[in-house]
Computed example of a mutant assay.
Amino acid sequence: MAKRTFENALGKLEQITEELENGDLSLEVSLKKFDEGIGLVEYCNTTLTEAKAKVELLLEKQGGLTKQPFDELDHGDQELS
């Protein structure tokens, strides 16, 4: 079995989402796919949380850089409606 990566998990999650959106699956299969998707979401969330912690640690080690929450960054080209 291939090692699970964030990219593979995200790709599989997208595939499951498409399959569920098509509505061609039985209820039993849909529930199994949904359960698998939940596991993939948890894996992706954990992986992203770990990556964020590593980035913050690297920023602290560099000294002169300061952390800024992502949602407070100026995105420039995005407008709020």
Results as ranks from 00 to 15, higher is better:
Met1Val: 10
Ala2Ile: 12
Lys3Leu: 11
Lys3Arg: 08
Lys3Thr: 14
Arg4Ile: 15
Arg4Trp: 12
Arg4Pro: 13
Arg4Glu: 10
Thr5Val: 09
Phe6Cys: 08
Leu10Tyr: 10
Gly11Cys: 01
Lys12Thr: 11
Leu13Trp: 08
Leu13Ala: 15
Ile16Pro: 04
Thr17Glu: 14
Glu18Gln: 13
Glu18Val: 07
Glu18Thr: 10
Glu18Pro: 00
Leu20Glu: 12
Glu21Ser: 03
Glu21Pro: 00
Gly23Phe: 05
Asp24Arg: 06
Leu25Ala: 07
Leu27Ile: 04
Leu27Lys: 08
Glu28Tyr: 00
Val29Ser: 09
Ser30Arg: 04
Lys32Glu: 14
Phe34Lys: 10
Asp35Phe: 06
Glu36Gln: 13
Ile38Ala: 08
Ile38Met: 08
Ile38Asp: 06
Gly39Leu: 02
Leu40Gly: 03
Val41Thr: 02
Tyr43Leu: 09
Cys44Pro: 00
Leu48Ala: 09
Leu48Val: 12
Thr49Gln: 07
Thr49Asn: 03
Glu50Arg: 05
Ala53Cys: 02
Lys54Arg: 11
Val55Arg: 11
Val55Ala: 14
Glu56Asn: 10
Glu56Thr: 05
Leu57Trp: 06
Leu58Ile: 14
Leu59Ala: 14
Leu59Trp: 02
Glu60Lys: 14
Glu60Arg: 10
Glu60Cys: 04
Lys61Pro: 00
Lys61Ser: 08
Gln62Arg: 12
Gly64Ile: 07
Gly64Arg: 06
Thr66Gln: 15
Thr66Glu: 15
Lys67Tyr: 15
Lys67His: 14
Lys67Val: 15
Gln68Met: 15
Gln68Ala: 13
Pro69Lys: 06
Asp71Met: 10
Glu72Gly: 02
Leu73Pro: 04
His75Asp: 05
Gly76Asp: 03
Asp77Cys: 04
Asp77Glu: 08
Glu79His: 05
Leu80Asn: 05
Leu80Gly: 04
Leu80Glu: 11
Ser81Ile: 13
Ser81Asp: 14
Ser81Gln: 08
